[in-house]
Every structure is written in C-alpha cells, then in structure tokens.
Nucleic acid binder design. Structure first.
Lengths: 213, 213, 213, 213
DNA sequence: CATGAATGAGTGTTCATTCAT
DNA sequence: CATGAATGAACACTCATTCAT
C-alpha cells in the first residue's frame, strides 16, 4: 500500500541498490568463497543485471572490500567503543568483549567473511592486505589494549602478550571455521554451545592471567 | 637390486614420477588451494608434460586423494599405533600425541592440506566426504580413545567428551591456519613458538581433566 | 513495428543470432558430423565468438537438438497436416507425400542431419533417443496412418506393414546417404534424378499394394 | 596341452599378431566408427601394447585400410569369381549374387565397415578415396557386368543402367545401415527377415527388368 | 621385436568485464 | 542510470604417435 502511495518508490529502490548488492554478495562470498562466486549470480540475487553491479562496484575485489567494510569492520569498531567506555574489571571486560564479539559477529553470517579471507588470502594478496589493515590490525590493537589495561590495573600479571592474544583468538577462530566449513561442522562441534565454549575459555584465560605465579 | 646396478634413465624416472608429481601437487594445493591449482602447473613443477600427469592420476580429484593418503592419513595412523603401544599415564600420552602430531604433521607443508580442505570443503563435497572418512573419523576416534583411556584409568574425570575434543583441536587448527594463510601469519603468531604453545595448552587441558571437581 | 522503424544495430543482431548460429551449426553438423564439429567453428561461421554460442545454447547437444527441431521435425509435422486434409486416393497420397518429403527435406541441406544421426547414433545415445522420439516415431506413425487409410478404404490389400514401411523408407534413405556421403555420391547416383527415382519407386509400391493376390 | 608340446607357440602367436589386431580393429571400427576408436583400445583388445600396433601398422589409417582389404574386398572378389563361372540365367544370377552378398558380407560384422565409411568419408578423404577404388568401383563393375550379361542374353530389356544399379544397391544399403545404427535398428526393421526382404526385392527387380515394355 | 612412458595440440565450457543501446 | 549481449583467456582432460629401453 505504501508503495502505491509513495511515488518515490523506484527512487528508494535505487538508493537501496548498493545495500541489496552488498547483502547478496555477503551471502555468496560466505557460501562459496571469493573465487567461486560469480558476479552474475550476485547481481541476480540482488535482482539487478550484471551491468548494474559493475556500475556500483568497479570490480569483484572492490565489491568484496565494501562487504568487509559493511560487515566486518563495524563489530571491531563497536568493540573499541565499548572498551573506551568500560568501567569494570579487565577480566570481566575481556570475557564481555569475547562474548559480544561472538553474538554480534561470530554467530552471524558475516563471520563467514573471515573464514573466506583466511581461506583465499594466498590467492588474493590485495584482499589480504586490505583485510589485514582494516580488520586484523585494529582487532589486535583492541585486544592488546585490553591486556595492557589489565596489566596497568594490576589485574593481569606475568603474561606473554603474543601467547595470550593467540589463546584468545584460537577458540573463536575455531568456532568460525567450524560454523562455515562442512569439513569441520560435523566434527562433533555441532553438539557444543558456542557461547558456553567461549565463556568457559574466557574464564580459563582470566584465571590464568590473574594467577600470581 | 638389478635396478640399482642398472640405472636406465627411463626406468629410474618412471618409478619416481608418481612421487615427484605428488610432491609438486602437495606444494601447489597447499600454496593455492584445490580449485586454483592448475593441473598443467603441477605437471610443469614435476618436470613433465600435462599428459603425463593424467597417465598416473586419472583426474585432479584422484591426484588430491593420493596426496591426502600419502601425507595426511599416515600421521594419524602412526599416532594410532603409538597409542596402542603406549604404557605411561594418559595425561602424558595426550600431551605426547599432540606434540608428535605437530612435529610430524602440523609443522610440515602437508598440514596445508588440512587448511585447504577446510577452506574448500563447501565447493567440493566429494573431496570433503573423502577427507571426512579417511582423516577426520580416524583422528576423532583416536582422540576419543585417549580420553576414554584416561577415564577408565581414573586419571581423567568429569569431562564432556565433545567439549574436550574441541579444546584439543582448536589450538592445533589455529596453528595450521596461521601457518598457511597470509591473512593470519602476520597476526603476531610469527613471534610464537608453536611447540611451546601446544605444550602449554596440553598442560592446561590435562590439569583441567585431572581436577577432582 | 518500432523495431523495423528503429533498426538499432545491436538489437537487430541479437534477434538474428540464434538463427545465424542454427544455420552455421546445421552446415557444420551436416558437413562434418556431430563429434567432429567444433563449437568454436560454429561460432566463427556465425560471425561471433565462442562464448556467444554458449549464451544461446547451453551445450553442443542442446545446439544440435535445436537444429533438429528447426530443420527436421517441421517437415514431418507438415506431412502429417497434409495427410489429415487429403481427400484423394491413398496411392496418390503415398506418392505425393514421398515426393513432398523429398522436395522439402530430402533434397535440402537439412537431410544431412538424418545421415548424421544414423552415422553417430551409437556414440551419442542421448542424441539418438531424442531423434527417435522427435523424428522417427512421428514419421513412422504418419507412414502407418497412410497405409491403414489405404487398407480401410480397400485400396491397399494383403500387405505386411513392416515390410512395406521398409520398402518406402529404403530408397529415400539411400538418396540421403548418397547426397551426404562422399563415399556414395560418386557411385553413379549423380547421374540419377532423385525425384524420378522416388516417383518410379512409389509407382512400383502402389502397384504392389493394390494387387489382389 | 598342445601349447606345452609345441615350442613354437610364441612364434605362432607372433605370426598371428596382425590378424588379432585386424580382428580387434574390425570390432571397434564397427562399434564406434573410425574417429572414435582409440588405437590403445585396439591394441588392448588384441592383447598387445600400443607400441606393437604401430609396429605392424604405421598409422590408424593404414590399420583401417588393412581391415578393409581383409574384410570388404574379399566378398566382392568372390562375387566376381562366381559371376565369371556362372552358367544359368541372368535373373537367377542377380538374385543369387544379392543373396550371397548378404550371407557372406551384409549379415556379418564386417558390413559395419561400409556403414562406417559412408558415415565418415567426409572427414577422411583419403580413406574415402581408398574405399572408392578398392570396393565401390569393383562392386559397381560387377553389377554392371551382370546387367550387361542379361542385356546381351536378351533376358533384361529397356532398362536404365544407373537407375537399376541404384535399385539393386538401395535395399542392401538400407539393411546394412539398419543393422549397424541404433537410430534405425528400432525402426520396425527388427521384425523383418533380411534374406526374405532381399529375395522379394530381387524378384521385383528381375520381373521389372524382364518385362517387355 | 615389444613395451609403455611421454608428449602436446586440441575441445567443450565458464566467467569477469566492457560497452552499445 | 540500467541493461544484457559480446568477448576471449582459461582449464581439465584426451589421444595418436614417438622412442628409449
């Protein structure tokens, strides 16, 4: 009804085009990977023609970068914001951020983009570099900041930053890969609750970081 | 014996061909993945023509399966053998197997095959099924056997098998992905010693499994 | 109408493409057979690139089926229509249909498709089945109907349907094979007038079918 | 047993090699045609290696020519011999030769060679020329001689040689094509006895040739 | 004589990107 | 702005023929 009353409908559609294309591209990149996703299929799923896709995004690579900016950079930025405003203890903060990251990103379709990049980085160095800059570096900086916050507040002691960072990342990466690869999704990981898994892991880590020895 | 004494060039080459091709294929599958590896390049790297490759392996898929059998199935089988003959405690056994697996497989080029399968399983269901059957199932069985050994000996208590299996696998998977994806290999993981990482993780796990509560 | 008034080049080309490709494919299938016809050559003869061919026909097999529908099914359908509307005697009808079939099909390039299918049916079972269904079955039904019409009108007597059908087909098949195979086209058949040959044969047949004994 | 007693067995096999290869080649050429027959399969069916085939026949084309000489030229030569020695009437001779040709050649596997040549002559001009010279020309000469014998004896009258030759050949060609192409072998031709078909046709022809008008 | 390993040109089909309309 | 027709390089796999052993 609103469509009939609103004469700007087509214009609204037009303005939504990039968003619809991004949505379609996200779906397909996650489902098939970068190389195996055909640009025609992206266009078709967004309900436009092949030519239109290249009107908004000059190449498949640029389309991918836009998908990353829209879906992957955001959660990191949000995490950074919450970090800046957080008042409580660093252990609780770390656990909170890990769980928030899972709820907002890891558990969503978008996390397939991380799986995709890890899978195909070797074949697309430009994409890898872009992802490195826009995602990995900020995320690692945030993680580092959390650990340093804990150290300077005296809550975390005697830890090796690199090892600890790995220990934070490893289980989350594992969950992502399990979620998006049929090679892992049957490896018993289906019977497991990811949030519980992360919570347990976070507790384990915080306990380790807080120990005196 | 006569072969050693009578090193006809053609004959010597022939017997080495499959091995040379397997070696080249391993390199390229690890470097570029399954889809992006061109059969002609495999042949070229092995120093033969395209046709020769198909003389020894009827298709790219069969070539891949041979690579898996040669490089991935073996370490699992070896682990199972050592498990059968092991005499000591189950905690030590678990730690030993994790480290042995890393030294014999994870740290080698061959582990890139695991990364490859996880990356492309969705696009190649037949390959995924093959890998599932030949690698994942036996490996999970071995892991399960180790945990059950610990339980029946009273060394491991009160653990959830699935969760624990995930906790064993996650860090090793993380190391593999880091080693073989340029998207991760700069994520600080280069400064870390994998064996130490595994050892620490194994200790953490064993402590958790041995705890009374 | 606007198309005629507004002859945009691209548009005009587009609508003619399938026809041009079908024409080129007919030429080449007749000239070289199915297996020996390269899709690139079909495209080149139609003045387009290889890719364009597959824009209109999803595979060489489908291209062939389209060629059959366009060039072979039609004459049979036309014959069936004329049969339905025919008023005169059955002997005259049989002779008329045989000659019409020759003029409309046998004497044209398109009849090379029949030669082609007979030649390669063993190697392409799917194509053979398609041809069987779309061409042979309707054609045999028509022939049968003509003979039954003659029997029910009392004009044709005491004939074995199968033998007679063969006797109708054999000379026409012979003419087609002669026309399209260089192995036969010099066998003296060049000095012969096909229409006269068919007319004579038809007369012979009708006389036989009309004989009392 | 005889093999054990006969030390020359291997030598006998050797001498039979060409024959075994010819036999295998005949089978495969008839089954799949010239282009689609792989030389390796010919060798395999003869129980020798690919190299051996090329030891006896310098190319696939030469192999084919040998098959023709062995299997197709012979029946024509035999027919010519019988013609030379025949004493009776020319009508009976024509009928006899037609039936003999069917029994000795048309009904055998070897007749597939004629189907094959007709099918592929356009793609292999050298083969077509060879077949023309070695088979078609002698066969047409024999047929011509039979007709001329009838004319000079006053038994055959008022006939057009070319038309008559076609009328003799057409049904036999039809039988061969039916026998060797799946596109025709279901066209009702299975219910028919070839010898009877030929006999009827021969009678029809002879009656026509003997008629006064 | 016999082998079979090796070659490499050839074929059907796909897909990112361009551009005339 | 939007379309979709057109391109052509790429890629897995085949096979007649050669030749070292």
């Amino acid at each position: 009804m609103s469509e009939i009353l609103n004469p700007h409908k087509r214009e609204r559609r037009k303005q939504h085009r990039p968003g619809e294309l991004l949505e379609a591209a996200l779906d397909l990149f996650v489902e098939k990977g970068f190389a195996a996703t055909r640009s025609e299929e992206v266009a078709a799923r967004a309900g436009v023609s092949k030519g239109t896709l290249f009107l908004y995004f000059p190449s498949k690579e640029e389309l991918f970068k836009a998908v990353v900016r829209e879906n992957v950079v955001k959660p990191v930025t949000e995490g950074a914001l919450e970090f800046a405003n957080y008042q409580g203890g660093s252990g609780a903060l770390l656990k909170y951020l890990m769980l928030a990251w899972w709820r907002r990103y890891g558990s969503t379709k978008a996390s397939g983009i991380s799986k995709m990049i890890i899978s195909e980085a070797n074949n697309f160095p430009d994409l890898a570099a872009f992802y490195q800059e826009e995602v990995i570096v900020p995320a690692m900086r945030l993680l580092n900041d959390v650990l340093e916050r804990g150290r300077s507040q005296g809550e975390f002691k005697n830890f090796n930053t690199d090892h600890t960072a790995m220990a934070v990342i490893a289980p989350m990466l594992f969950l992502i890969m399990s979620k998006h690869s049929s090679a892992l999704c049957h490896a018993g990981s289906k019977q497991m609750d990811p949030e519980e898994f992360i919570a347990q892991h976070a507790d384990l880590l915080v306990r380790g970081l807080s120990a005196s020895n």
